[in-house]
Nucleic acid binder design. Sequence first.
DNA 1: TAGTGGTCTAGACCACATG
DNA 2: ATGTGGTCTAGACCACTAG
Lengths: 235, 235
Amino acid sequence: MSTSIPLYRRLAERLRNRITDGELAEGSSFPTEMEICATEGVSRHTAREALRILSEDGLIERRRGAGTVVVQRERSSFAQSIGDYDALLQYARDTQFEIEAVADAGLRELETFGLEGDYKRYSGVRRVPGQRPQAAVTVFIRTDLDPGISPGTSLSGSIADGLEESRKARIDRVTQRMEAVALCKTAARAIGAEQGSPALRTVRRYRDAEDRILLLSESFHPAGRFAYEMRLARA
Amino acid sequence: MSTSIPLYRRLAERLRNRITDGELAEGSSFPTEMEICATEGVSRHTAREALRILSEDGLIERRRGAGTVVVQRERSSFAQSIGDYDALLQYARDTQFEIEAVADAGLRELETFGLEGDYKRYSGVRRVPGQRPQAAVTVFIRTDLDPGISPGTSLSGSIADGLEESRKARIDRVTQRMEAVALCKTAARAIGAEQGSPALRTVRRYRDAEDRILLLSESFHPAGRFAYEMRLARA
DNA sequence: TAGTGGTCTAGACCACATG
DNA sequence: ATGTGGTCTAGACCACTAG
């Protein structure tokens, strides 16, 4: 085996492609577990693990006794998600990421964020040129994808943006987590806010189709300087 | 045989209790899979399913070769994955909106939120039954759509949910704004947090196809009790 | 009744972390 | 070197849905 990606993940990826390619139409008829076992030559457990992934991703729905169907999404969350992703990148294009430090990521940080492997850490602030910083930002990028930017550089756009253009890897999806926190000392100093004051913490994980994290960003937006707006259209 | 709840779920529940009861301390030492198999008399697959539940709930962390540890940080965040409108409603279904007061909305509040016309104001907290409040919530609903709920009622789901079912109006889209703020006195008292402590403020505006605001909700999630997760997939 | 997904067992090999 | 969690197989019984 030349690949270390588990069989059930590769199987999930093949099935996912059959959906997005349109071979498996929306609203009906997904192969049964036993069919997948037979055609793909895997055990039922492996087939089920793959189906679990697709189910958690919202691509299929399963009902005991009835069967599995491809979820109907007429222009729904998928189209909506694209807009969100673009909007996300748009924000990055409107501001500059001023890189203040670059280093190898430490073991503790990697563990904190659930990263496995080697990553480079870029830290700095994001701001509209001429204004005070909107956020303290830390970016972890897998070392083999490191663009090798020097400290002191101001990046118009995001590192994720450059990652796309380099074609070294393809970002398949992004998960984003937001919560309110009290600013830690480091972040507070970086953006000129008071330690302990409220901030919006945003962690984004950029993953490829095999669910590996290519890039991770953590931002602290102090209260009053940033609000996140999104629009949820109905399916 | 008396119960229809699967074994692995009951096992997960037992293990969860051992964590919350303090028998399994944070930071280290969770029974290994083989230990669970032996002491609980289950197969490894069943043990793993139970552990998967706890892992997805963020109670434990697993590392190959190293073992399993209890994480249960003080702030047991409740992560909500929201990618589209349906997922947003799902969160409301998992928690209860406990209504503490109902009144006509005042002119100043209407102005603050950009509302025009007559609205009813419902205020209270949202929580998973049996747990401490996750958020202080205020809902404004256009008076002609008022469901007429009495103070003291616990609503399983959201008012927006009921609005849909009443078929008196159709929600076409929702815009959502999120930012970090310091808790005001009123909200802080409602959820038992300290005034001035960090919170995530979320304002949602539910509009019909003519862009009129049918319903508006404002929530304050104190730091540590809630995280907002969304997934941005690409085509 | 036949077929589906849900649960559960027993066993195996592997990659990895730790001592 | 040992033990951990991660993957995978083969087989079984069950609850449920649908024709």
